[in-house]
Design a protein around this nucleic acid. Sequence first.
DNA 1: CAAAACATGTAAGCGGTTACATGATTTT
DNA 2: AAAATCATGTAACCGCTTACATGTTTTG
Lengths: 188, 188
Amino acid sequence: MALEHAILVSLLEKPGSGYELARRFERSIGYFWTATHQQIYRVLRRMESDGLLAVRELPQQSRPDKKEYSVVGPGRAALSRWLHESIQPESMRHDLAVKIRGAAFDDPSVLVREVERHRQVHSERLAHYLAGEQRDFTGPAAPPSLDAAQELQHVVLRGGIAYERMTIAWLDDVLDTLRRLGTAEPHA
Amino acid sequence: MALEHAILVSLLEKPGSGYELARRFERSIGYFWTATHQQIYRVLRRMESDGLLAVRELPQQSRPDKKEYSVVGPGRAALSRWLHESIQPESMRHDLAVKIRGAAFDDPSVLVREVERHRQVHSERLAHYLAGEQRDFTGPAAPPSLDAAQELQHVVLRGGIAYERMTIAWLDDVLDTLRRLGTAEPHA
DNA sequence: CAAAACATGTAAGCGGTTACATGATTTT
DNA sequence: AAAATCATGTAACCGCTTACATGTTTTG
């Protein structure tokens, strides 16, 4: 149940409402953890009733009140406890790999479009990450004055960049393979 | 719901029992899709009652009967339909990345051990994949006579290899970063 | 004027994990 | 003698997704 922990990290970086968190989970922290607003609202309420978070209701005219959550002592302690635990290295959940192996029992070339689409998405993500890196971790303010939080955000971002580059190269390999099979053997 | 599809692929490659499938999900197909035996048994029963699979009961002396499942027409059709659908590129679910960003709010050096452990696991996986590649995709039988199924299995395995290599390199980067922060700033 | 953004929620259902349960056979 | 393998299941729970619901304000 790392969603709780992802929320703790995000709220420690900056307090915010459920809505704002949902938006962050579409960017930044969402690069390696996803969540929908429904779930975020539910978990926020639970975490608040568990005493991990404090709420401040910000009344707004003609809009639902905004609830700004922030981490309090027990929340910080819970995060610290989790950091000291060991988690097992994630097991993959790669639909596309299942499809590729499955293509042996159909026409492999039906996957070409699909794989091209994935490649496109990963290219865009890579470009997006690189732009973020350029913006946040280079230039005048960067080299000397990076604090721990920024250094750690940067190394995570570098991981995302490495992942996207690796994936794009692999998808090119997949496309080559599919095309070779497509021309050599018309059908299984 | 790709577990169904992963099972279809695995049973098309070779019919087998729930127990055997559970073992395959610890190796081979399990490299990019995991499942426990409980779930596999449940899904197998559902797929059989949906007419995607056929069962053959193999009575055994003094052991539960073994149920050998195999894919029948509608199952093959379901797989084919899935192959023609498009799926969205997976969103990451990377606990370790959350931890790394969270380390900014605690002592970053507490993660060194953890990251080293992960690095170790990924090294072992890489060695395992490389051994499998050596065994199945090189040597006398390999170059000329690979059929489509083998080619596709190989390209998926190459993906696993690329993933592990990338991950190991990134974890080294993470370790460097954590150690630098550990010596420079004792605590947040 | 329509669409997107702001802001929060309920309800149903499924996929998956964890714990519990049984019992013989083979290996160490 | 103990542990691992073979072989299949039940039950409870939880995290997460999808669909539905509401209503204003800002942007194109």
